[in-house]
C-alpha cells in the first residue's frame, strides 16, 4: 500500500517523493491535492500533487520540512509505505482556453506551480514563468520551468542566483513590457500571493491563487479551511484550492494560518528531540 518509489532532496529542506497510488494517479490533475498520514498516529497532511504518472500509477509530492508532520514524513525512505493516502481532492486548476499565462511561483510553491505550467505548455499556451526563492541554495525546479516557459525570470531575495528582487517586481516589468496575459497564476506564500494580486489588480489582469489553509479531512467536513472570497465563505478543500485572487481576503487567511503556531513550535521541538534520541 502506498509504497514510496523514490525520494530525492531538491534542496536542504525540500524533498520530492513519488508514491505508488494507481487510483489517485488515474484521476489527478494539476492543482489538486492529496492528504497523507505517514504513520498510524500521524496528522493528516494536505499536499498538492506536484506530478503524476498515470501509466506507472504514481503521484509525486514535494514538501518542505517545516513542522513535526513533515519531519515525521521525512523519516520514511524509498521502499517504506505511507500509512494513508487519499485523493485527488479539490478542483483542478482551470486551464481551458488560456492562450498566454504568467505563472508566478514562490519557494516550495513552485512545486505546485510547475505541473500547471507544464500542462499549459502541453496544451500549446504561451507560458511565462516568474519563480522566486530566498537564496541560491533554495532554488528548485529551475530546469523544469525553463523547459516549459518561453520567458522565465528567476528571482532571489539576495541576488545569489538569477536576478535580485521580488517576483512582484519581475511580474510588473513583464506586464509593463507589453505582455498581455489571459491570466496570472500565483502559487506561493500567502504574503507573496497577496502582493502579486495587488500588482495585477492595478493592470486588470485576472489572477488565480492556490490557497493552502489548515484543514483536517479535505472533503468539506470540518470547515477549518474556510476562507472569505468575495464576501462569501468558501471551503478551500471542495470549492478550491484555486480562487480568484482579487476576491480573496488575504489578511484573514494570513491570520488564520497562524492558529496553531505555538502548538507547532512545541511539536517541532518535541519531534526534534525524539529524532535526536533515535540518532544517539
Amino acid at each position: 500500500m502506498f509504497e514510496i518509489v523514490s525520494k530525492k532532496a531538491l534542496n536542504p529542506t525540500v524533498v520530492r517523493m513519488t508514491i505508488h497510488a494507481p487510483l489517485i494517479a488515474r484521476k489527478a490533475e494539476p492543482g489538486q491535492f492529496v492528504i497523507l498520514r505517514a504513520g498510524e498516529n500521524s496528522e493528516r497532511l494536505p499536499l498538492t500533487v506536484a506530478d503524476f504518472d498515470r501509466e506507472a500509477g504514481s503521484v509525486t509530492i514535494i514538501y518542505q520540512i517545516v513542522g513535526a508532520g513533515t519531519m515525521e514524513l521525512n523519516t520514511l525512505e524509498q521502499g517504506d509505505c505511507l500509512h494513508d493516502l487519499v485523493g485527488p481532492l479539490g478542483v483542478a486548476t482551470h486551464t481551458d482556453g488560456l492562450k498566454k499565462v504568467c505563472i508566478v511561483g514562490g519557494g516550495v510553491g513552485c512545486a505546485i506551480a510547475y505541473p500547471v505550467a507544464k500542462k499549459l505548455h502541453g496544451l500549446g499556451a504561451e507560458v511565462h514563468s516568474v519563480i522566486g526563492f530566498r537564496n541560491r541554495d533554495l532554488v528548485i525546479l529551475e530546469d523544469d520551468f525553463r523547459k516549459v516557459s518561453s520567458e522565465m525570470r528567476l528571482m532571489t531575495d539576495d541576488g545569489s542566483h538569477g536576478e535580485k528582487g521580488l517576483v512582484t517586481a519581475a511580474l510588473e516589468k513583464l506586464i509593463q513590457e507589453g505582455n498581455q496575459y489571459d491570466e496570472v497564476i500565483a502559487i506561493g506564500p500567502l504574503v507573496m500571493m497577496k502582493f502579486v494580486c495587488q500588482v495585477t489588480k492595478k493592470y486588470g489582469v485576472k489572477t488565480v491563487v492556490s490557497m493552502n489553509p489548515i484543514m483536517v479531512d479535505g472533503t468539506g467536513m470540518c470547515g477549518g479551511c474556510r476562507l472569505t472570497v468575495g464576501g462569501e465563505t468558501k471551503f478551500a478543500c471542495v470549492d478550491g484550492p484555486d480562487f480568484d485572487g482579487h476576491l480573496v481576503d488575504f489578511d484573514e487567511a494570513i491570520a488564520r494560518s497562524g492558529m496553531y503556531r505555538e502548538f507547532e513550535a512545541h511539536a517541532r521541538e518535541a519531534s526534534c528531540n525524539l529524532l535526536k534520541k533515535e540518532v544517539e
Binding site: 470540518c222 476562507l227 484573514e252
Partner: peptide, 12 residues
C-alpha cells in the same frame, strides 16, 4: 467574526 481564530465547527 466567524473566521476569527478560535471559531470551530463542531465537526472540526
Amino acid at each position: 467574526g466567524e473566521s476569527l481564530k478560535g471559531v470551530y465547527s463542531a465537526n472540526e
